[in-house]
């Protein structure tokens, strides 16, 4: 039963490489899974748009589902952000659907793209950028400086670390949760290959669907919380 880590298929693998100058760039399984998720979402959005634009007075079939999804996402943003909600519905809804599809793509045999730190860190950076821009827009430069020197001026380094820890902890949380699910499934399929029939489906429901949905919700909730706390002015 001794297996090396090469037999457990959860590492990111290079598919092909090409050279630009001195650098070798690899197209990995993450890129391909990301592309698949992207294509699925684009096709879904085309169908959704078609369903929303034609339709008569009474919505039916697919249009009901699309309207339900949109209402659910908008309701979530409205509940959390209050009066700031209208300008962030699009962004939050987009990252929600993207992260959700990425997380549950493990069900379809893909390696979830969010189990790659190169995918989640940009998401954290996006949140950080939005938070910083809104902070400067709503609190002005004086307010930002005052917030950084909050109890006393020599607290500045700690407040700076606190600000820069936001994207790192956000992205690491998502990454590590999805990665742990991926590793657990790889261990089950790699080490218990002989008896892995049907029952791993239960683990898939937990690790891919439940954990993935919870982490998606948490990422979006935390993003909204950070953004609205940056926009609040006393």
């Amino acid at each position: 039963m001794l297996l090396s880590s090469d037999d457990l298929g959860f590492m990111i693998e290079g598919v092909f490489s090409f050279k630009i100058g001195d650098h070798t760039l690899w197209i990995t399984t993450s890129h391909i899974c990301l592309l698949i998720v992207f294509l699925v979402l684009v096709i879904f959005s085309f169908f959704a748009k078609a369903a929303l634009t034609k339709g008569g007075e009474v919505p039916s079939g697919f249009r009901n589902i699309v309207e339900m999804i949109v209402e659910m996402l908008d309701g979530m943003v409205d509940n959390t952000m209050g009066k700031f909600a209208p300008s962030f519905r699009n962004y939050i809804g987009t990252i929600f659907i993207f992260i959700l599809f990425s997380n549950i793509s493990g069900l379809l045999g893909l390696r979830p793209p969010t189990a790659d730190y190169g995918v989640t860190f940009p998401l954290g950076i996006l949140t950080f950028t939005i938070v910083t821009i809104q902070k400067f827009r709503y609190q002005k430069v004086s307010g930002v400086i005052k917030g950084l020197c909050d109890p006393w001026p020599f607290w500045l380094p700690i407040n700076l670390i606190g600000d820069f820890a936001v994207p790192i902890s956000l992205s690491l949380r998502l990454f590590a949760n999805v990665l742990s699910g991926t590793v657990m499934m790889a261990l089950v399929y790699g080490l218990l290959k002989v008896i892995a029939y049907a029952w791993p489906a239960v683990l898939h429901v937990y690790f891919d669907m439940f954990s993935g949905a919870i982490q998606t919700y948490v990422f979006c909730m935390l993003t909204m919380t950070y953004i609205s706390s940056a926009m609040e002015t006393e």
Partner: peptide
Amino acid sequence: LLGQAVAETTGLYGLLVAMLLMF
């Protein structure tokens, strides 16, 4: 759920360290 997810972070850092050491 939100509080639990935030509390989970420290455990995940331990997991990350373990993964880095192992693989």
